[in-house]
């Protein structure tokens, strides 16, 4: 038959209160197996309390070649930061 197991991306929440974070990837036949494998590969030492798996092909990633047009416009918008605004020192709690 020769059909290879697809690749899955693994996200782990290390403890409640924190977000799921990308831990790595692995191969599995289906989602359930991906969860079981993720438990063995990425949480052998209590690294997590919750796991998300998503097949890698479903992730759309931005292209680093477009980083200029995507991210640079934010650089000259200093007025989005609190330090842009001049206030006298007497003003407290702001």
């Amino acid at each position: 038959m020769k059909k290879n197991w697809p690749l899955w991306e693994i996200f782990v929440r290390s403890k409640n209160g924190l977000e799921h974070r990308h831990f790595g990837s692995l191969h599995a036949a289906d989602a359930e197996m991906a969860l079981e494998n993720a438990r063995d590969v990425y949480t052998r030492r209590n690294e997590g309390v919750s796991i998300w798996v998503v097949e890698s092909k479903h992730i759309t990633a931005s292209n680093p070649e477009h980083n200029g047009e995507l991210f640079e416009p934010a650089q000259d918008k200093v007025y989005r930061h609190p330090t842009f605004y001049d206030l006298p020192d007497e003003v407290k709690h702001m």
């Binding site: 059909k3 036949a29 289906d30 197996m33």
Partner: peptide, 12 residues
């Protein structure tokens, strides 16, 4: 590996 793949496809 083949059996796991076949099972996954059948489930889907």
């Amino acid at each position: 590996r083949d059996a796991a793949m076949a099972f996954a496809e059948k489930q889907r």
